[in-house]
């Protein structure tokens, strides 16, 4: 583990910038979101409540390719990305999205279904995750197999002990990066003890997790239950939860331009919108607000676990913060296990 004093962060950033385009939280107006960073002074180090960093690897609008006079131009690979300061819930979300975008679904004939846009960005990336010393009241990472110091999806774990950052290599890539950089102090026993103290304090700030076995049993039986009517009654299907969710990966594909020149782009989409599933014939398999509300929770807590073994939720609580009608995913889960 190496130690970086906060006033020496510029030196560290210079090293990182040699090989990577560096993204970190940056404050713009009232909002803190992940932006490409040139100088350490631009980084907002203290805000736990940033916008989610999903867009670094999966932008809200992204070109799939361009075309001119029926000739198609492929997109070009860019410099590798390093992300400083994501939280464990975001680092884990990268792994979850990678299960959809990054892995080739093996079909007969060995068809390659990797998402090229995600893979070229994510595979070469270096993720620095900061442990959360003080989880927010909306955090429930401990409910969904994550935690304030969970290292899933991280190349390097960063601990903020107040004076500086302690960096611990997690992945092979992360360990190698740290072993290659010099001029930084090694951590000592006291530093490590401090980290344990921070971890213990953070744990106490989280609520008691849900009974996951019971959730599985109950959600499987819930399809036709009136709880879905009750819970979805106030939902206005605005989609804020999905746009602010680190794990929501659904997208639309649209063409921009004319027949002789333009681009095919993908855009974040949301299962909250009727058009998401509305067919040209007029038939909509998820016609009701309730259908769409139920889909969101079923996808995260039933379908994705069935297909991939994990919840498609890392407990970041972002959806709780942004929902204009106060739908709280924790209430929804509790309702499911209580009916």
């Amino acid at each position: 583990m190496i130690k970086i004093e906060k006033n020496k962060f510029d030196e560290f950033l210079e090293i990182l910038k040699k090989e990577y385009n560096v993204f970190a939280p940056k404050k713009e107006g009232a909002q803190t979101s992940f932006k490409e960073i040139k100088f350490a002074k631009d980084i907002e180090f203290n805000n736990i409540n940033t916008k989610i960093p999903k867009e670094i690897f999966f932008p809200q609008a992204e070109e799939l390719f361009m075309y001119k006079d029926s000739k198609i131009e492929n997109i070009e690979k860019k410099k590798a990305i390093a992300v400083w300061g994501v939280r464990p819930c975001s680092a884990k979300s990268f792994i979850l999205i990678d299960k959809i975008f990054g892995r080739a679904k093996q079909k007969p004939g060995d068809k390659n279904f990797e998402d090229p846009l995600w893979k070229t960005k994510y595979d070469d990336s270096l993720v620095f995750t900061i442990g959360c010393n003080t989880p927010a009241s909306t955090c429930f990472c401990n409910w969904v197999d994550c935690g304030p110091f969970d290292s899933t999806g991280s190349d390097v774990m960063v601990y903020d002990d107040g004076n500086g950052f302690l960096l611990e290599g997690i992945s092979k890539k992360g360990i190698k990066f740290l072993s290659d950089i010099k001029d930084f102090e090694e951590s000592n026993d006291k530093d490590r003890q401090n980290i344990e103290v921070l971890k213990n304090i953070a744990e106490t700030m989280l609520s008691k997790p849900i009974d996951k076995d019971l959730l599985k049993v109950k959600i499987d039986k819930s399809w036709n239950h009136s709880i879905w009517d009750e819970m979805s009654a106030k939902c206005i299907n605005c989609g804020a939860c999905t746009y602010n969710c680190p794990t929501c990966h659904c997208f639309d594909i649209q063409d921009e331009g004319k027949s002789n020149k333009g681009k095919r782009i993908r855009l974040w989409d949301s299962c909250m919108f009727p058009d998401f599933t509305n067919e040209a014939s007029g038939h909509n398999p998820r016609d009701l607000s309730k259908d769409r509300f139920r889909q969101r929770f079923m996808h995260k807590f039933k379908y994705f676990p069935e297909n991939n073994g994990d919840y498609l939720c890392t407990g970041c609580g972002k959806c709780i913060q942004v929902c204009p009608v106060n739908v709280d995913v924790r209430d929804v889960l509790n309702k499911i296990i209580e009916f």
């Binding site: 975008f101 679904k105 998401f276 067919e279 079923m298 996808h299 069935e306």
Partner: peptide, 24 residues
């Protein structure tokens, strides 16, 4: 079966029927 589709390769998320994607 048919559902509205975009990517056709199990990524864009709209053609599911339960945990199954119609496309893949």
């Amino acid at each position: 079966l048919e559902r509205k589709m975009k990517c056709g390769i199990g990524k864009c998320g709209r053609c599911n029927i339960g945990s199954k994607y119609v496309c893949i």
